[in-house]
């Protein structure tokens, strides 16, 4: 197939496994909550999320025990995602605004901030509980 070099490639691909990352369920279930309940009971299996490399910059974690409220992290945050609570000497991070540059974790003198592996963060409410770290 000199003029259509794609055809042999296509016919070969027809018998190979697809390259796409699998969704949690192969096809959209008619009811997602029912499907998840089934998974909970162990009647159905979900494809796990793809693994992430070492030092991946996922959802931020905050350990307030050592925090002194120095506000350096807020100073370097490009997205203004960090709110400094002056009275409590704590910070509050809005993950929906975070751009995952990890600059706050670099500058934090107490090592209170770190990036986790979590990346499935979609939510309809940008102020949902799991999207505010404090």
């Amino acid at each position: 197939m000199a003029t259509l070099p794609m055809i042999p490639e296509l016919l070969r691909q027809l018998f190979r496994t697809p390259a796409t990352n699998a969704f949690p369920a192969k096809y959209l279930p008619s009811s997602v909550t029912e499907f998840l309940a089934k998974v909970g009971r162990g009647e159905a299996a979900i494809h796990p999320p793809v693994p992430v490399p070492k030092d991946f910059r996922g959802k931020i974690t905050y350990d307030p025990t050592g925090c002194t409220g120095c506000s350096l992290c807020a100073k370097v945050c490009p997205a203004h995602a960090i709110e400094v609570l002056k009275d409590e000497k704590r910070i509050r991070i809005y993950v929906s605004q975070c751009i995952f540059c990890s600059q706050c974790t670099d500058i934090c003198p107490k090592g209170s901030l770190a990036m986790s592996d979590a990346f499935l963060l979609a939510d309809e409410n940008r102020y949902a509980d799991h999207l505010i770290v404090e």
């Binding site: 490399p53 030092d55 910059r57 751009i99 995952f100 540059c101 990890s102 670099d106």
Partner: peptide
């Protein structure tokens, strides 16, 4: 995937810093 491995991010790498690179 290689960029993600090297920088920690897939699309907006956040690796450049004024004066060098961060990783």
């Amino acid at each position: 995937d290689t960029i993600e491995l090297l920088t920690g991010n897939r699309v907006n790498y956040g690796i450049i810093q004024v004066g060098g690179v961060r990783r």
